[in-house]
Simulated scan of single mutants.
Amino acid sequence: MTVLLVTNDFPPRQGGIETFVRSLCDQLPDVVVYTSHEPGDLQYDATLPFPVIRDRNTMLLPTARVTRRAVQLMHDYGAGRILFGAAAPLGLMGTALRRAGAHKIVAMTHGHETWWAGVPGARQALRKIGDAADTLTTVSSWCADQIAPALAPQAAQRMRRLTPGVDTQRFAPGCGGDDVRRKLGLEGVPLVVCVSRLIRRKGQDTLIRAWPQIRRQVPGARLMLVGGGPDREYLEKLAARTGVSDAVLFTGPVPWAEIPPYVDAADVFAMPCRTRRFGLEPEALGIVTLEASATGKPVVVGDSGGASDTVRHGETGYLVDPYNPTAVAVRIAELLGNPGDLGANGRAWVEAEWTWQRSGAVLRQLLDI
């Protein structure tokens, strides 16, 4: 029943995929991880209840050497089940691992495989990955629709949905938002929060452009952008040009363990994410939106890629045109004035359908555990 997880996406490296892959390890009865080297990995790995074998390189690629190492680990640990943390490109080792005795192979897709599906050469490689795996998983229905045409018909029929879960104990109403507001001097202030890297695809610039209209409708409303990233200087200058610098608070990077109180501080969570680079850079899902719903917040989300799977329009929040600041402003102002039951609806939905236990049960079924 041992599972060999082969992945580049593993802590202490930070990111949504890393959190997804690491959390799934807790749902497996017996797992061993083969991953890349990262600064600080010795200290991190010492805290884990399962073995982690680090490659000498900072990135695993499906080379002959890495494949031989994966086969050796499979034999050393009696791991007849293989899980690729990201299908492309490591899933190209699937055929060799199958020949070496792997009983089940599951390859997870996230968002970048949608790019592979549309590019000649990469598309053929993705087809080989699908042929070698028992199952390719997808995080959203949109991702499945993009990837399926690149696969052989049989492989497309074997695709299954495997989504990240939400820790509904960590992300819960009252998990520390009042403390954050006191610390930042935001008590009693109408507050919108966006938690994400500061990059163009996440749509923080759309929020800033929407803010003059929001302030006219909701005097004193503030916007808190939680996270770091390459776009911070651009966003600060945009806020100054738009005349809303006094209304926009940049927290800078916040450790993942400390994120829930910042989400809980919001009256409304907003991330008008958008698709960029001629469709090659979409939002695959957006687990932070579901974390906000788990915290009981109404959400406003951009219509990009699989983001629509994270909101029930009109029930837990609203899906908006991320290129239309006016439309974004209308929805945010509406929710600041009258959130209704959307936050409570979102909490109930996440508790019912987006838990790690549910995701773990799906994965164990796919691995035949």
Rank of each mutant, 00 (worst) to 15 (best):
A150W: 02
A132L: 11
D167R: 05
P190Y: 06
D131P: 01
T206P: 01
K183D: 15
G165D: 06
P190N: 12
M93C: 10
I214D: 00
R123T: 10
P190G: 12
W211N: 03
Q157L: 14
L223D: 01
A152E: 08
V119N: 11
T135S: 11
R209K: 13
G94M: 07
L184K: 08
D145L: 04
L97V: 10
L151C: 06
W142E: 03
A133P: 03
L92F: 07
R127C: 14
R123K: 15
R215T: 14
I208S: 08
R209W: 00
A125N: 02
T138P: 00
A210K: 00
M224I: 11
V193N: 01
K128V: 14
G94W: 04
G185C: 12
G94Y: 02
P212R: 04
P219I: 09
M108G: 02
G177P: 08
R98N: 07
Q169I: 13
A122Y: 15
P149K: 06
E187V: 15
I105G: 01
Q213F: 06
A144I: 01
A221D: 04
P149E: 08
H112G: 04
M159A: 11
A102Y: 02
Q204C: 10
M108P: 01
F171K: 03
T95R: 13
K128Y: 11
V139A: 02
F171H: 08
R222T: 06
I105S: 03
R216C: 11
I199K: 03
G176N: 04
S196W: 00
L151I: 06
Q204K: 09
K104C: 13
L162F: 12
L92H: 11
G165R: 07
R197P: 02
G118N: 14
L223R: 01
T95I: 03
K104S: 14
A210E: 02
P153Y: 09
L223N: 01
M108A: 10
C194Y: 00
K104G: 03
D167L: 10
A117P: 10
G177E: 08
L198N: 09
C143K: 00
P212E: 05
R160Q: 15
R160S: 15
M93E: 06
L198Q: 13
Q146W: 04
K128A: 15
K128I: 11
R161V: 12
Q204W: 05
C143A: 14
I208L: 13
G165F: 12
I129A: 10
L136D: 08
A100E: 02
V192S: 09
I199P: 00
G121K: 07
G203P: 03
D205E: 12
V195P: 01
G174N: 08
A221F: 01
V180Q: 01
R200A: 14
Q169G: 13
H103A: 15
T206Y: 00
Q146M: 13
V193D: 01
L223W: 02
G177H: 05
V106R: 02
D167N: 15
L151A: 04
I147K: 05
V218H: 05
L162S: 07
H110V: 03
A144T: 07
R216L: 10
A221S: 13
P164I: 09
L162G: 04
P153H: 05
P164E: 09
A152L: 05
P149Q: 07
R98K: 14
T135H: 15
